[in-house]
Amino acid sequence: MNDPLQQLIEAIKVGNRKIAATATQTALDSGSSGKEVLGALSEGMDDVGKRFKANEIFVPEVLVAARAMKKSMELLEPILVKSGIKPEHTLVIGTVKGDLHDIGKNLVAMMMKGANFNVIDLGTNLPAQTILDAAIEHKADLVGLSALLTTTMPAMRETVALMNKEPHPFKIIVGGAPITQDFADDIGADGFAIDAASTVELARTLVTSS
C-alpha cells in the first residue's frame, strides 16, 4: 500500500483524518493531479455510501468519513486555486424550511466544491425567500434544494414555485432520500440526482446546456 492515492481511498473508507491528510499531501508532492486526488476521494465516499445503504455502517461512520474527506479537500483547495482553475459556476445550496437534515446536502456541497464549483451553503431550515434572495445575490448558476422528510416536501414545492414565479437565470436541482425524478418534474425543478456523484454529472450537464 505505497500508492498514496490508494492510501487516501482507504483512509476515507475508515474515516481516518490524519492518514487522509498525509496521504493527500504525499500524493500531491509526488505529482498526482488535483483531479486524481478528487477521484480517490470520490471512490472512498462512494464505498461509504454503499455500505451505509447496505446497513453495514451507520450515520456516525458516514460523518467521520466526510470529515476525513473535508481534511483532504482543505489541502487540495489551495492547489486548485494555484493551478489557476477558477470556479466558473456558482451553486447556492440548502435544506428547505422545517427540515434540519444536512448530512447528504453537505456531501453534495463538498463534492461540488471538489468538482470546481463555487459553493454557497446556506445551511438548513431555510425559508423560500431566503434561498431566492441568496441565489440572486450570488448570481447563482444553480440552486440546490434538499429535503429528507416527506413532511417538508411541500416546502420544497413552495420554494421552487416561488423561484419560478419570475424568470431567473439559474437552474434548480433537488435531492434527498424521499425525492424522485417524478416529484422533481412535477414541482418544476430542472434536475434531480440520487447521490453526490451523480449531482456533479447533472450539474455539469445543466450548466453547459444553458
Binding site: 467521520v64 470529515r67 444536512d102 448530512i103
Partner: peptide, 15 residues
C-alpha cells in the same frame, strides 16, 4: 475512533 464517532453523532443534532 470511538470517541470521534460519538462526537460526530452529537454534532448531527447540533441544529
Amino acid at each position: 475512533l470511538v470517541d470521534e464517532l460519538l462526537e460526530a453523532d452529537k454534532e448531527s443534532f447540533a441544529h
